[in-house]
């Protein structure tokens, strides 16, 4: 699987490099892989590339953490008090259906050009899949387990800790895995809209300077970051599935 993936990547890079060389494509259209690498090395040495990566990673980290915790808390609240779900549904749907691109300028107006609006945007997009994953897990607990809880006269807390929470873990982490890609996108949108640091900022300044190599380099870097983030949660999800799902 991994070997084939690497072979595929090598092939694409070879085609890219070969094509640029054969057809003599100008740099401002499509720079060669070597030119992109050189540009990345330059940014690494002279423009604190790692510092920008760190900024973006931290925005995603804090935003994701916030959205994750808020999603879990909301699901607990909604499962316990269904009326609270009905009351907050309009607000949640509004936030969820509004294009994130449209929310971003508002957050920038309110929270400035620093990491704060990006963190909030990431939290907003993370919230929804995590909340629905947790809530559906809590709602569809195997009925037989609830019978067991009843025979054992478990307290609500015991029932939650021993039965409902473990039952919800697979769908919670399925939701979180979906949220990783959304979170990545949200952070970059925030940075593209207005920032003075972060990978998205480097990307948009590359665009302003018609620096195609930087733009391509940043796109590749973001894909790599998003992919690792996704794989991390996919691995967690698989572990949860193996341990906590039926069967």
């Amino acid at each position: 699987m991994l070997k084939r993936g690497i072979a595929g990547l090598v092939l694409i890079v070879a085609l890219w490099g070969g094509g640029v060389f054969l057809f003599n494509v100008p740099d401002y259209l499509l720079p060669s892989p070597a030119a992109v690498m050189a540009r990345m090395a330059f940014l690494y040495e002279n423009a604190n590339l790692l510092g920008h990566v760190y900024v973006t990673v931290m925005e995603i980290f804090w935003g994701f953490l916030l959205g994750f915790l808020a999603g879990i808390l909301a699901a607990l609240l909604f499962a316990r008090f269904p009326v609270s779900e009905r009351m907050s549904t309009p607000l949640i749907l509004l936030l969820q259906t509004a294009p994130k691109i449209a929310i971003a300028p508002l957050l920038l107006l309110w929270l400035g050009l620093g990491p704060a609006p990006k963190i909030v945007l990431v939290a907003i997009v993370t919230f929804f899949p995590v909340m629905t994953g947790m809530l559906s897990g809590l709602r569809f607990v195997n009925k037989s387990y609830l019978d067991l809880a009843r025979v054992l006269k478990l307290s609500p807390l015991q029932r939650f800790l021993h039965i409902e929470l473990p039952s919800a873990l697979p769908t919670l982490f399925a939701g979180a895995t979906v949220a990783t890609t959304l979170a990545m996108t949200a952070a970059v949108i925030g940075e593209l809209m207005g920032a003075n640091e972060g990978v998205g900022y480097l990307l948009s300044s590359g665009q302003e300077n018609a620096d195609t190599a930087t733009v391509i380099g940043m796109v590749l870097l973001l894909s790599l970051m998003g992919w690792s983030f996704y794989e991390l949660f996919e691995a967690l999800r698989r572990r949860m599935e193996a341990r906590f799902a039926e069967g």
Binding site: S144, Y145, D147, L148, V151, L152, I163, R243
Partner: peptide
């Protein structure tokens, strides 16, 4: 008795985790 009955369900109902 706090738990008057024990129940052995038809399909075991062990907690998988």
């Amino acid at each position: 008795a706090k738990r008057p009955v024990g129940f052995v369900f038809q399909d075991a109902v062990l907690l998988p985790w």
